[in-house]
Design a binder for these strands. Structure first.
Length: 100
DNA sequence: CGTATGACGTGCA
DNA sequence: GTGCACGCCATAC
């Protein structure tokens, strides 16, 4: 199928598991164009699909870039998902602390 | 077809 | 650490 990048991105974002977040770049990579992270955000912004958890898509810093409803609202939603936040930054529980 | 736009990412000062 | 500028890709008009 000639699925446009948009369709792929939407499908990928819709497949994001609860409590997880992907960066625009990751989505772009999964879509087949690691350099189209720009288009990814562009697509989501123009697409207001209810089945697209765009709030699970964040920037490279795991920060909310911009949302139609307001970043704070998305943060609240993600908090319910089980994630934690530091202002607009998502707190990653990285195991890189060796003993932790 | 060409131009303009955009919810980004990275590099450098 | 912060701020600025450039580059990239896809979509819409």
């Amino acid at each position: 199928m000639n699925k446009t990048f948009k369709q792929k991105v939407l499908a990928i974002v819709a497949k994001i598991p609860k409590g997880k977040t992907l960066t625009y770049k990751q989505v772009a990579v999964r879509a087949g164009s690691p350099r189209a992270y720009r288009a990814v955000g562009n697509i989501l912004n123009k697409n207001s699909d209810p089945g697209i958890p765009c709030h699970r898509v964040v920037g490279s810093d795991k920060k909310m870039r911009g949302f139609n409803r307001g970043i704070s609202e998305k943060i609240n939603l993600l908090k319910k998902e089980g994630l934690k936040f530091s202002k607009e930054k998502i707190i990653l529980q990285r195991t890189s602390r060796a003993a932790r």
